[in-house]
Design a protein around this nucleic acid. Structure first.
Lengths: 162, 162
DNA sequence: GATAACATATCAGAGGTCTGATAATATGGG
DNA sequence: CCCATATTATCAGACCTCTGATATGTTATC
């Protein structure tokens, strides 16, 4: 006795087992899945020297040129402070440049540098490949179900909803 | 002229629109949904003075008593260092106690204090209510599709999979 | 029993993320 | 024109999360 309980690594469920399987709480399963996916992205991006957050912000800058950091924060569901930190790190790495805005004295013009554009293109390849893996267990119909659900969750948990 | 481009807040998509809608990348949609849900949990837990990470670890301690911090890290898909930080903060708040382990000199016995148990019970109510909201747009069949997908994602993106 | 291999816990440092506070700029109403 | 309000950017502080390094304890091998 004195064993079987208090012994490390004994009887622990792995992902997909017990409370960690299909009977678990949806919120828990989402946290688990999002965490696993995020870690995976982070690992794949590591050789490029950028993080997933930096990838997101670079993508935003490319997609919505001329917008303020506050705008980027809104569409990324982040706070302006967070975006500010990320941009500071991107500038330190020479991937993004900040310059005075032409028509607005307070906001700053954000642009990818040449190095930033190259890095983004390389990162995109990797992330898009991962997107395929995300889809591989889904039929066409089930994929639509999942997409609709993800969008619904984002919409009615965003801001002060409910 | 000089307007319509470079003017803040103009023509930005909201969640569910454009690239942020059902045609977007699955990974992006998941990041968006998980972020919104996480923010929502954080806000609901705020009056209890705990974070979602602390809620997760307290739940683990209650569910797998007698296990090491390293074990908790494994089942939570976190690193031992992260769990160590969270437990340190929980101890500082008087919600968790650390004591020498009975049969193993290196690991430490983790227990919820009375205050910790009360706090966990209250937090559980709130989080479980949110789980209902997560499900409300899904039929029974679609919920199973989503659950299977989330588990599959967690399994084949965990560790060094692929 | 001594040693090698492994597990546990923690420190240090980086980056991401939040809340709260502060400073500077725009914009609109008197 | 002046001031109130809103927006933008940033600083400070807290917590979460990772990687890498270190110290200590356990287990297996010889």
């Amino acid at each position: 006795m004195g064993k079987g309980q208090g012994v490390p690594g004994f009887g622990l469920p792995r992902p997909g087992e017990g409370k960690r399987g299909e009977e678990g709480y949806l919120g828990y399963l989402m946290r688990q899945a999002a965490g696993a996916y995020r870690n995976r992205c982070e690992r794949d991006l590591k050789d490029l020297g950028i993080t997933t957050a930096q990838f997101t912000v670079m993508t935003m800058i490319a997609a919505y040129p001329g917008h303020s950091g506050a705008d980027l924060a809104r569409i990324a569901l982040l706070t302006p402070q967070t975006v500010s930190v990320i941009i500071a790190n991107l500038e330190k790495s020479g991937l993004v440049s900040r310059s005075p805005h032409a028509v607005h004295g307070r906001i700053q013009q954000l642009d990818l540098t040449d190095a930033g554009r190259d890095r983004l293109a390389a990162a995109r390849k990797k992330i898009h490949a991962l997107d395929g893996a995300l889809r591989h267990s889904l039929s066409k119909e089930d994929e639509q179900v999942v997409r609709r659900w993800l969008v619904a969750v984002a919409i009615d948990h965003g801001e002060g909803a409910n």
